[in-house]
Design a protein around this nucleic acid. Structure first.
Lengths: 203, 203
DNA sequence: GTCTATAGAAGGATAGAC
DNA sequence: GTCTATCCTTCTATAGAC
């Protein structure tokens, strides 16, 4: 692959990422992507054959990127409470830098459930649970966290982190109306959400 | 308006609601809506002129419907804790009956921020706060709930209720993999989320 | 009010020259 | 590898008959 090819393919990929995240699969236009990349429409087909393949390439990259963000939590050498603080700090910071990623991914998954496989194929819940148990046996007992209620807890944690971005435009509008600011709200949220969860699981 | 006209317009509206929620504004097709309504494509234009107007009619109805669900919380004669339980029970039950509503609304708002006005035009946060303060002064002080941190608290409550549906397909897939079931998870969530929040705000 | 027919534009995709 | 030209389909929207 020559330097030129790599450059073009990369330009297309970056342009496609931008347009797909902005408009979604259905709303995106090949012409729009070509314009963003500064090349001709038919070059898109030369490199990716179809709109669907181009979209899949973009989606897989983003899915992988989001999943990687969860990994460090499960091997970082921290107490359970510190892991919760660590997670919210890191995860919200990541979404803060890419505020359109969460709504994009959630929407495309709901629209096309087949895509979900790319997300969960790598996830082994039982193994995650075994790891957690090995690292935090006493704390899990103390907080009464069991394999049965871990879905409730983990989706609650995800909810507190992701929802502000999934509902960003709505929340930002209401905050503006109150004289507040979305960026400040998000900055505060890193700590608020962590303490909220830690309090919630304390008996 | 004759009985016939009303019937046709209503059939169109219902078909459009179904198709728009399923496919979104960009993915929906006028032909598809006409087929669902069992009428001809050009009748859609006769009644609603454009796809955009038809979509707006549908969206406004749904937006109003979702907002109405929040109202009883602010005048029900209940303690603060009971209101929290009441809210999760009612709100999750509503979303349970209409599991595609939340992702639809969130996505369309993010895609077209102008639409957000239809949602928040009726909301008067200061008045909500005044009402809450009048009804629960001591409880708010006890839990250290202030006008400054109410955005964090209210978005957290919304998050715990809405996120399971915003991420439904993803969450359901992971649950299946664990041998659990999404419907059971949602049923349990009505109580889990309420106790989670009540614990979280207790010092 | 409801239908058929069709306009008119736009979209994805391909052929072929260079 | 990149471009122009163009095919073919699909989509919104309108005209006009009944």
């Amino acid at each position: 692959m020559t330097e030129n090819e790599r450059q073009t393919e990369e330009k297309i990929f970056e342009a496609a990422t931008e347009v797909f995240i902005e408009k979604g699969m259905d709303g995106a236009r090949m012409q729009d992507i070509a314009d963003h990349a500064g090349i001709n429409k038919s070059l898109l087909h030369y490199y990716y054959r179809t709109k669907n393949r181009l979209f899949n390439a973009v989606f897989e990259m983003i899915a992988g990127q989001m999943f990687k963000k969860f990994a460090p939590v499960f091997d970082a050498n921290l107490s359970l409470e510190e892991k919760i603080r660590f997670f919210f700090r890191e995860h919200i910071s990541f979404l803060q830098k890419n505020p359109r990623l969460a709504p994009f991914v959630l929407n495309e998954i709901n629209r096309n459930p087949e895509r979900v496989r790319k997300f969960i194929q790598g996830i082994d819940i039982k193994k995650i649970w075994t790891t957690l148990e090995a690292q935090h046996k006493e704390e899990l007992e103390k907080y009464n966290i069991t394999l049965e209620n871990i879905p409730q807890l983990m989706t609650s944690i995800a909810a507190l982190s992701v929802f502000p971005f999934a509902g960003r435009v709505l929340i930002a509008s209401i905050l503006e109306k109150m004289g507040y600011n979305f960026d400040d709200y998000i900055e505060k949220r890193k700590k608020y959400a962590a303490e909220f969860v830690i309090n919630a699981i304390k008996k």
